[in-house]
Write a protein that binds this DNA or RNA. Structure first.
Lengths: 116, 116
DNA sequence: GAAAATGGCAACCATATGATTGCGTATTGC
DNA sequence: GCAATACGCAATCATATGGTTGCCATTTTC
């Protein structure tokens, strides 16, 4: 018999996806996903927007748990956090799995003439 | 030697994530991912918002390619489209892979005192 | 053919979002 | 110590977003 594993509360991934839903933030996250922590200055060096704009994006990522930050001297270093990405992935996996499941793909638009 | 496969244009997944970044839309997509096409009325039946609000969300999903719609008589049927989900997943996979790669996780915040 | 069901369109509203600018403060380099 | 660097805070702005309401048109149903 299985041990009484407590369900790890699904926690809706919408905020994570929302944080990912921006080109600039995706780019920042991609850079940081190499595991190297970087300062705001470094991250805004080649951006076509102000440092403040980049800072805001980083704070959005931080709110979603996608990055963490620590102050080191006069700079703020941001680092990639893998957990939310895992969570988002597993959500997409579940959606894909449900789609792949059974006869799913055969039912599309083939419900007959009646209301559904 | 490999055939000259044309790169399937990366097409930034930000708009897909943005479309996924809403509770209501995630819920709609989850329902539709069983492969059954449904009308707007059906989809808004148990929603705590107006039919119009649900319609707007469905159009957002449609703009991101996550669902398609066809008019059947007096109703509009929406069906799940798997491609964007695959694309989003593969993006997250690449991010995760880069993270898993090499010594990535060891570099976090361990860059020494100098500016980075 | 009249009523019900389905949904499109448009106006409208409050709030969120993405970005800028200006300025103040703390830290570092020389 | 002073200038440069790095950053935070706040105001401001335009536009996007999420939601509502009202009304009209098309289909079905009986």
């Amino acid at each position: 018999m299985s041990s009484p594993e407590r369900q790890v509360r699904p926690a809706d991934p919408a905020p994570i996806f929302a944080a990912l839903g921006d080109r600039t933030r995706l780019s920042l996250l991609t850079r940081l996903s190499d595991g190297r922590a970087r300062s705001i200055s470094t991250l805004s060096a080649d951006a076509r927007m102000t440092r403040q704009a980049v800072t805001k994006h980083l704070r959005v990522l931080e709110s979603a748990g996608l990055v963490s930050s620590i102050r080191v001297g006069r700079e703020s270093r941001f680092a990639y956090r893998p957990e939310p990405v895992i969570e988002a992935r597993s959500y997409l996996d579940r959606v894909s799995a449900q789609w792949d499941d059974a006869l799913g793909r055969l039912r599309t638009f083939v419900e007959g003439p009646g209301p559904i």
